[in-house]
C-alpha cells in the first residue's frame, strides 16, 4: 500500500456508499473524510484542506453542483479537482459542468469504487 499525504473529501447523504468509497480510498493510501450533506462538506472544507473533493449530486440542503459553486468561491478550492457522482444522463452535461464549475469528471451511479480510486490517482497525478 502506498501512503500519500493527500486528503480526499467524500460527500454523500448515502452514508453506506460514502463509507465504501472511503474504504476503497483508505485502502489506496489516501486520507479521507466524509460529510453527509453539502453544508457539512462546506464547513469541513473551510476547516481542513482537501486535495480532491468527491461529491454526490442529489443531496438535501445543498446539491453537489451548488457545493461546487460554493467551493469555487473559496481561494483554496479554486483549482481543486472535483468528481461528481450523479444520476445517469447528467454525464452528458459534463462539458458544460467542466466549463462552468471546473468539474473534472463525473461518475454515474452505480459506480465502481476501484474506478473512483483510479480517477483520483489520475487527477492527483499520483502513480498508481
Amino acid at each position: 500500500m502506498q501512503t500519500t499525504t493527500q486528503n480526499v473529501l467524500i460527500v454523500d447523504d448515502n452514508i453506506a456508499l460514502a463509507r465504501v468509497t472511503q474504504f476503497a480510498l483508505d485502502n489506496a493510501g489516501f486520507n479521507t473524510q466524509t460529510a453527509g450533506n453539502g453544508q457539512q462538506a462546506l464547513e469541513l472544507a473551510q476547516e481542513l484542506h482537501f486535495d480532491i473533493v468527491i461529491t454526490d449530486q442529489q443531496m438535501p440542503q445543498l446539491t453537489g453542483i451548488e457545493l461546487c459553486r460554493e467551493l469555487r468561491r473559496l481561494p483554496d478550492y479554486h483549482a481543486c479537482p472535483i468528481i461528481l457522482l450523479t444520476a445517469k444522463g447528467l454525464e452528458l452535461e459534463l462539458p458544460k459542468l467542466r466549463d462552468e464549475l471546473g468539474i473534472n469528471t463525473t461518475f454515474a451511479k452505480p459506480f465502481s469504487p476501484s474506478a473512483i480510486v483510479k480517477a483520483v490517482h489520475e487527477l492527483l497525478a499520483v502513480p498508481a
Binding site: 448515502n14 453506506a16 456508499l17 465504501v20 468509497t21 474504504f23 476503497a24 444520476a87 451511479k109 452505480p110 459506480f111 465502481s112 469504487p113 476501484s114
Partner: peptide, 13 residues
C-alpha cells in the same frame, strides 16, 4: 439506484 449503487460498490469491494 441508491440500493443498487451500494450493493454494487460493496460486492465489488
Amino acid at each position: 439506484r441508491t440500493p443498487l449503487s451500494n450493493i454494487k460498490a460493496y460486492v465489488e469491494t
